[in-house]
Design a protein around this nucleic acid. Sequence first.
DNA 1: CAGTGGTCTAGACCACATA
DNA 2: ATGTGGTCTAGACCACTGA
Lengths: 255, 255
Amino acid sequence: MLKIDRQRIDAAKPTPLYLQVADLIRDEIKDGVIRIGDALPSERELSDMVGISRVTVRKAIETLLREGLLSRKHGSGTYIAPRIEQPAALLAGFTADMRNRGQQPGSIWLERETGLPTPEEALALSLSIDQPIMRFARVRTANDEPMAIERASVPARFLGAIDDVSTSLYSALEARGCRPVRGLQRLQASLATPDEAAALSLPAGAAILRIERRAFLADGTPVEFTRSAYRGDRYDFVTEVRDLAADKRMLEAAK
Amino acid sequence: MLKIDRQRIDAAKPTPLYLQVADLIRDEIKDGVIRIGDALPSERELSDMVGISRVTVRKAIETLLREGLLSRKHGSGTYIAPRIEQPAALLAGFTADMRNRGQQPGSIWLERETGLPTPEEALALSLSIDQPIMRFARVRTANDEPMAIERASVPARFLGAIDDVSTSLYSALEARGCRPVRGLQRLQASLATPDEAAALSLPAGAAILRIERRAFLADGTPVEFTRSAYRGDRYDFVTEVRDLAADKRMLEAAK
DNA sequence: CAGTGGTCTAGACCACATA
DNA sequence: ATGTGGTCTAGACCACTGA
């Protein structure tokens, strides 16, 4: 049974009442006081318990609905939503991605060099043109079959010697404490160029999934800019999408 | 200046007042009666014009805010969608997605029917084969150019009449309180079939981005199963990815 | 300052679920 | 029949914006 600490509700605080109520309920859920599938007390009950109008209680509940924590059934009640499986879109390099799919990752090196950034790289990585970067171009294989062409650019200061990167770029970054925590990816369908077709053992004009990724440290510094061309017939990309709210709330709570 | 047709508001209709008001405002925006950057009449004015309480007018406006059509500025006013942000992977239908990209969404109907689920649909939507579903097949356009072919299947019980779905499936679902909060998408690059090429004004063998989506209510019930074929030359898909450890850290910080 | 959105209340009626 | 969520109202006060 849920027990709301009425003391924690304070109309004098600048935080709106409905958010205070939402926070209380969220905590009860997080601490396991009420479990998945359980019904919340009815809106009128909550309203009495907390000494707050039903309209306001409803607004609190609506906040949690949008976060996916609760679900309502007209005429029946309000319930704790089942826990959501998450591992959809993780920030993982090719190596970890293939292992997750039960395949054996590998590489064939095309290029490995240090140099100055192109304008595109400078823009993507927020660098000035005199800060050196390292470039890594490989054909990536899964179970020894070519799967993708990957061209990664990383500011040199995030890596030691250039041959620290043997198979996994992310392992090398992690070893230096520079593993990115967040990434933005852009996906696009296109056709294989003759060079790509040859490298991937595909006929000319085959379908290619292009993925462009920028990855960042927790403080927002760009660490990696990678353009990949995946075989359309062998690779699919799975992602989870949510109706906003949860992220916004977390940012508010964090500040 | 916006002029609300008070006649079109009818408390006797089964549609809630706040949705009727939202529809009116949405139409005024669509028809260009009020333009980007213009201020909406104040909530109190609207309330008087339409003869409806301010609370209800606010609820209508909140609906449009979530669709990204309006933006509010405390102390100043409510304005027509001044700018488009593209927060990474939101759960949005085609209509909202295109609006976010600053394009005008449209549809050409191919099919609209009620029927029994195929085995694939039954599996994707967790249905038994005797529960009717509705199917919606459309060519989706952006600024009147074909952008994608979309085939959506929704269990009939989540919708009323089949022609409740005029332009936006998600609006129709929201009106019935069945808007999904979470979705799983699978993306794959492939080539256009002759039929697809014709429907999308593409040459045969052009690049196609296939997106398959299942969307769920907060309690995990599947609501929508959609397969789309997007023009590879016109559409890209942007998504944000996070490291798991980073998520955990945010949860710690939040409590 | 006047006008705007932001929050809150107490009470009402309806539609739906469950027993 | 009872209890639940869904909608709606009229009026109030606060916080912010902008002239």
